[in-house]
């Protein structure tokens, strides 16, 4: 009897999950191209979330630091690339532009991309060395410090760049969209962002599973004191991991700034997304980040479109769906899908 009651929420969640799948199947059969488009919207969003959250989860997995400034690093990266592009390649005047008066060369995109990624890596390294290192092991204090950093960065970005949304230009020589039969989709979203996410995923996997550094990181995730006792310079590894994690935030910021735009508020939005991704996927797990990002992206995308029931339009409340997802995952696996107890 008690067992039955305890299983009730689970049964309800399974029923809800099945209902969602059936609902989507009906929608998919009704409008093929629209469904494909919505699915790709979710997948490409997920790709961006993954890039950002991978850095977040890497830092957490190794150092147990919940880097609440991760979203700020994302936005800062976007602004750095935007400024680099407008000042070095486009004459540097426009407040907002589309289609660019002056054409953007491939270098005009790649150089700002690499530059912003590296700068953000260094900013992250600075945060770790100056603010977090002397608080090692004090999780709550570190989380609060990074919150402070994120608020400071957010305000400085508004003060400096203003409240206006900007956009980084993709190279003019790249097509705007790709067409397959009657279906058309944005080139940058589909090819560049999705490709970058796959590349980041594969490279991180290779790094972690097949290199000495990866071995050290994995060992550090499992048992830091022992790793340190074995003579590994843990401080160096920590610094490296923070550099890499921050770089991923900056890299994501540039891609996001090109795919969508750069503007105030995106920092907390991407921090929230990263948190949801790692909570779903399990903190510290790379495959978890991938699955979590995909689930989050798809749920956001479907709930923005398919919550029409006859004349009742629930799409404005679609934002709640992502939190239902979190609740559903935590109900089954309190540590996330791929989470392991420390």
């Amino acid at each position: 009897m008690t067992l039955g009651i305890r299983q009730l929420p689970r049964t309800a969640l399974i029923a809800l999950g099945l209902l969602v799948v059936v609902w989507l199947a009906i929608k998919a059969s009704q409008g093929g191209n629209t469904f494909l488009q919505v699915t790709l919207n979710g997948t490409t969003d997920a790709a961006l979330y993954f890039i950002v959250a991978a850095g977040f989860t890497l830092i957490f997995g190794l150092m147990r630091v919940v880097n609440m400034a991760h979203g700020s690093l994302y936005l800062f990266g976007g602004y750095i690339a935007y400024v680099a592009q407008t000042h070095w390649y486009a004459g540097g005047t426009s407040q907002f532009q589309l289609g660019a008066t002056s054409s953007t060369s491939i270098w005009g995109f790649l150089v700002p991309l690499v530059f912003a990624t590296l700068v953000i890596g260094l900013v992250g390294l600075g945060i770790q060395q100056l603010l977090l290192r002397w608080n090692q092991g004090q999780d709550l204090r570190q989380a609060l410090i990074t919150i402070a950093v994120s608020v400071i960065i957010a305000d400085q970005l508004i003060a400096h760049y203003g409240g206006i949304v900007e956009s980084i230009q993709q190279p003019t020589s790249w097509p705007n969209s790709i067409v397959i039969g009657t279906f058309r989709y944005g080139f940058f979203r589909l090819v560049v962002v999705l490709g970058a996410a796959l590349a980041v995923g594969v490279l991180l996997y290779l790094l972690i599973q097949h290199t000495r550094l990866g071995m050290i990181i994995r060992a550090g995730v499992d048992d830091r004191p022992m790793l340190s006792a074995l003579g590994v310079n843990v401080q160096l590894v920590f610094a490296g991991a923070f550099f890499l994690g921050a770089m991923l935030a900056g890299f994501g910021g540039v891609l996001g700034g090109t795919m969508i735009s750069v503007g105030p508020g995106l920092d907390s939005q991407f921090l929230l997304n990263s948190l949801i991704v790692v909570i779903i996927g399990g903190m510290g797990s790379l495959p978890g980040a991938a699955i979590g990002a995909l689930l989050l992206g798809l749920v956001q995308s479907y709930s923005a479109i398919y919550l029409h029931f006859g004349a009742t339009d629930l799409t404005p409340y679609g934002v709640l769906a992502q939190f239902i997802l979190v609740i559903a995952v935590l109900a089954f696996r309190p540590l996330g899908l791929f989470g392991r107890p420390a």
């Binding site: 629209t34 488009q37 919505v38 919207n41 490409t44 969003d45 949304v165 944005g186 979203r189 969508i260 735009s261 503007g263 508020g265 995106l266 956001q300 995308s301 923005a304 479109i305």
Partner: peptide, 10 residues
């Protein structure tokens, strides 16, 4: 204030 219009375009 929407920046990503993809789901509305869909």
């Amino acid at each position: 204030g929407t920046t990503d219009y993809s789901s509305y375009i869909s």
